[in-house]
Simulated scan of single mutants.
Amino acid sequence: MSTQSIDPVKLAGAKSKGKRPWFLEDTDVERLMNITHALVQEVAVIRERMDTIERLLERDGKVTKESIEAYKPARFEADERGLLMQEYIARVFRIMQQDVEAASMPDEASSAEVAEEFAQTD
């Protein structure tokens, strides 16, 4: 198949048959969450490719598309990438983790409440 016959918009719009299932009450929130997840995934891919480019430059001093596609990280490199990816995902979704932690500490004051308390003291 030639690249001229590929329609990226049509491919991006491909979906399973049937109605789309909704999991959240607010479909707008779910749409935003899906967009966010897609962006997070794209950035993760870019980060991994950038890591590949940096490693190839360090090792060989040059990079080609073929060398990027053929690159297979050594075990220690894959472990480093895995840790970096875990840290990235934790930063992106830290608000969710903070909500879980806050639910386990219902009596803890919010930052707004603490600020208001300091503002009221003379």
Rank of each mutant, 00 (worst) to 15 (best):
V92Q: 06
T27E: 15
T36G: 10
S110W: 02
T64F: 10
K62S: 15
F23P: 00
R49I: 08
K15P: 14
S16W: 10
R91F: 03
V100L: 07
I35E: 12
I6G: 06
K17N: 13
E108I: 00
Q120T: 02
E87R: 04
G82R: 06
I46D: 12
V92Y: 09
H37D: 10
K62T: 15
Q98P: 02
Y88A: 02
L32P: 02
D79R: 09
E48R: 09
P8G: 02
K65C: 06
L11T: 03
P106I: 02
L57T: 14
V29P: 03
M96L: 08
R81N: 13
G13H: 03
S2W: 00
S16V: 12
I35S: 01
P106V: 06
Q86S: 08
K72E: 13
K72W: 04
R94M: 06
P73A: 02
E30Y: 01
I68F: 14
T27M: 11
T3Y: 07
M96R: 01
R75M: 05
A103I: 11
L56S: 03
L11N: 05
P8Q: 07
P8N: 07
I6V: 15
F118H: 01
A38I: 03
R47T: 03
S5G: 07
S104L: 14
R75H: 01
